[in-house]
Design a protein around this nucleic acid. Structure first.
Lengths: 140, 140
DNA sequence: TCCGGTAGCTGTAATCATTACAAGTTTGCA
DNA sequence: TGCAAACTTGTAATGATTACAGCTACCGGA
């Protein structure tokens, strides 16, 4: 369930979103860096390649991509929003020690509650926090 | 699973947290207002009762209460952190129309993934977004 | 080929939640 | 009673995000 760049590009065209050069680069970055980067990370990395890039453009692009549903934004206990390509059926685990965010498989689709019978659910999120294996072994 | 005020107070003493007057009031507020209030809401409501209250105190208190695990902080797609008394086994649903946050029952404890075999999980969160029944009917 | 308009990009300024800090106040304990 | 530590308060700083205004690039029609 990891959509290819070509698929995403087509998906955008179908939604009448113009793929400008800068937007292409942001999208490309998200496809190649599935590490839940922050705006700051995306911006400073792309700046090496596009010295005239504006941070505002990154914000704008991410907003557009998020609105179309191609990209998912999330804030896990941080003051920084993180972004990733929207793939289904996975939760996020954030390590409280190294702050890395891991994906893990979870069957969210079949995960519902009777309390929400009359609710229209548009978006499901699962995130855990704790210590990742790497940090656990480093402590010993 | 809604702890009483007396229980919470005892819980705090056990953790060597001094219950100052202001902290008491913040805790009391959270017990009486289980609507996931923001700092701004807590502060401005308590200000009526405690005109000398400082917003910094509210922030400090919430940090302490969160660290002890009595209070849970969450940011659902907002730029404002919300707080509630930490009760187990429930997820949050945020209405995209009226922005109300609902609790719903969910069996989080039995909700794990093989991918996280070697992770130490300290905290589990489930939140959904969509439209609540009230807003759904109002639209018609 | 030229022109006009629109969409997109850029950079600065403003906003707003949160945190840092320093000084005043209260509390607990000897 | 007095001291030290813990709390509170208010202001200033920080830092992510948004607003905005001007500039640029592209596209369609004459």
């Amino acid at each position: 369930m990891t959509p290819s760049f070509a698929e995403l590009k087509q998906n955008l065209k179908a939604k009448n979103i113009n793929l400008s050069f800068q937007r292409l680069k942001v999208l490309e970055y998200l496809v190649n860096n599935r590490c839940h980067p922050s705006v700051e990370q995306i911006f400073s990395d792309l700046l090496k390649e596009l010295p005239t890039l504006s941070k505002t453009t990154v914000y704008n692009t991410l907003r557009i991509l998020t609105e179309t549903g191609l990209v998912r934004s999330m804030t896990i206990d941080d003051n920084e929003t993180r972004y990733d390509i929207n793939t289904k059926n996975h939760g996020h685990f954030k390590c409280n020690s190294c702050h890395t965010i891991y994906d893990f498989y979870v069957d969210i689709d079949n995960f519902c509650s009777d309390d929400l019978k009359n609710f229209k659910i548009e978006n499901k999120n699962v995130y855990f926090m704790g210590i990742c294996p790497r940090c656990l072994t480093n402590k010993e």
